[in-house]
């Protein structure tokens, strides 16, 4: 077996240390420079308007790519971004209501969501039933502003699709 002298070992150790650190710093700075510190995009938490401005059923908000869904005085928000590969789903009013069993629960639905890109279809609560979409459309938290009583949707907080916000 070849033995390494202490001096050589230290030399190798030191040069790996020095050059390694330099390379590491460069790589870190290089990667980091691709992430802007501010984004000129719509915010993740935003006001969507007063409750009375919405019509019953899904209301599509193009800027934020969500549906704000009104059922009487109950509200919830669903993402309109297909969970397959990110196309925009459209809602489809059903001519007559349909009873479906979703995750063991029987629900009555008045609309469904369709994705044009590869034909995924979602039940009214966002659960996919045909096509390649792997997961349900996420539901986001809805709250109300204490200042001007406008509804607020927070895309950072995903909630259960059964949750409703009552005004």
């Amino acid at each position: 077996m070849k033995t390494v002298k202490r001096r050589n070992f230290l030399k190798i150790f030191a040069s790996i240390g020095i050059f390694g650190t330099m390379a590491g710093q460069t790589a870190y700075a290089l990667v980091k420079s691709f992430f802007p510190k501010a984004r000129y995009e719509p915010p993740q938490r935003f006001k969507v308007g007063s409750a009375y401005q919405f019509t019953d059923g899904p209301n599509f908000l193009a800027k934020h790519r969500i549906f704000v869904i009104k059922e009487g005085n109950k509200f919830h928000a669903l993402s309109s971004v297909c969970t397959h590969l990110g196309c925009n789903v459209t809602f489809n009013k059903l001519a007559k209501t349909k009873n479906v069993t979703v995750r063991g629960k029987e629900i009555e639905e008045k609309w469904e969501f369709n994705c044009a890109c590869h034909g995924s279809k979602f039940y009214g609560d966002g659960t996919p039933y045909t096509g390649p979409a792997p997961t349900p459309l996420p539901a986001y938290e809805v709250s109300v502003s204490a200042v001007d009583r406008k509804l607020i949707v927070d895309k950072n907080i995903v909630v259960d699709s059964g949750q409703r916000f009552t005004v």
Binding site: H84, L85, C117, H118, G119, G131, P132, A133, P134, T135
Partner: peptide, 17 residues
Amino acid sequence: LVASTTISVGQYRINGG
């Protein structure tokens, strides 16, 4: 291919993408 290869493994769904 991406439109038709979403598969389920146990309880996981793997995106066709």
